[in-house]
Design a protein around this nucleic acid. Structure first.
Ligand code: FES
Ligand code: FES
Lengths: 165, 165
DNA sequence: GTAATACTTGACAGAAACAGTAGGGTATTA
DNA sequence: TAATACCCTACTGTTTCTGTCAAGTATTAC
């Protein structure tokens, strides 16, 4: 249950490759395709949406490719998935579009809502920077990653709590 | 993204109705159908699987219906969804069946795994009892629900942590 | 200016999962 | 024996997913 689409998965993996070239080196679709085993045509579709969302910038012609439009620590996994799969909505009743007449009397509505918000909050705390350094995993062992958390927009505390299994 | 199937949703809502009759009063599919706005035929399919899983028991003939096979506080939302949608597996690589050759070199594998485990852990802490009393929501406001947690199989502490948004 | 590189865009199609219906069968009670 | 209520399998239309394809535009190198 709760399967992530391949678009979302590939999107994150592609963004990881692009992030590795930040801030100078553009990376081509072809390179991403080879490193991550995803077809060029499919990646085109995915990266296009991420570009329109303002997460990456493209450079045409020889020597071109894609580069991040922000620094890796300011791009969360949530922002990538949001663009490719829409916001977390465990039920159609919770969908921005959907809506439901039973909401008020529904016993499960708040449950799905709470869970969805937790998931989204978690994904907002993990950034491409974390993916590159891999430090988000060590947090679960009780180690402090940074002495001074710099970015305020993305909090690490939540990830630390959640990963403390 | 991360949509729950209607089978899962209806299943939980049906179990809620059955739980309300615990431990004495059997409830018929027809009653559940009316209260929760789900067709009888579809509910038959859903409840059948839950019965085979040992979550509920059925009584045939007039005056019959369904009753819980355990007490409401010992039936978690996770156990219901597991039966109707299978275990949480954000990617096919994480599926008990699936498998993946890239696992070791994959940058995202552990991320999806960690998130999936968090979701499942959360769902294991919410029970039908919580759904009936609605107390699982108040926890987020820092109130203690029970002085002495009785059941050990299902811990409330995790839900308390997670809901503290 | 021409060729090669690389991104851009929209349409399309096969496959799989989902959501639900249909119809007949079995057990129990009154 | 009639009515109630669960049991079981199959099937089907719809939607979503997972890509592919083909043609186009912009940039660079020579
Ligand atoms: S059925 Fe729509 S909110 Fe529960
Ligand atoms: S691609 Fe299978 S584990 Fe990441």
């Amino acid at each position: 249950m709760l399967r992530l689409s391949t678009k979302g998965q590939y999107g994150v993996r592609a963004m990881y490759e692009i992030a590795r070239g930040y801030p100078e080196t553009p990376i081509t679709i072809k390179e991403i395709s080879e490193r991550q085993d995803v077809s060029v045509a499919y990646l085109e579709q995915i990266l296009n949406r991420l570009r329109k969302a303002g997460l990456i910038r493209s450079i045409k012609g020889p020597g071109g490719g894609y580069i991040l439009d922000k620094s890796p620590e300011n791009i969360s996994i949530a922002s990538i998935l949001n663009e490719l799969e829409g916001p977390v909505a465990l039920t159609s009743c919770l969908d921005p579009e959907g809506g439901c007449v039973r909401v008020d009397s529904c016993v499960t509505h708040l449950l799905w809502k709470a869970l969805g918000e937790q998931v989204e909050a978690f994904l907002r705390t993990i950034t491409l920077k974390n993916l590159i350094t891999g430090d988000f995993l060590k947090v679960s062992k009780g180690q402090s990653v940074r002495a001074k958390p710099k970015s305020q927009s993305i909090k690490e505390s939540k990830a630390m709590t959640l990963l403390k299994l």
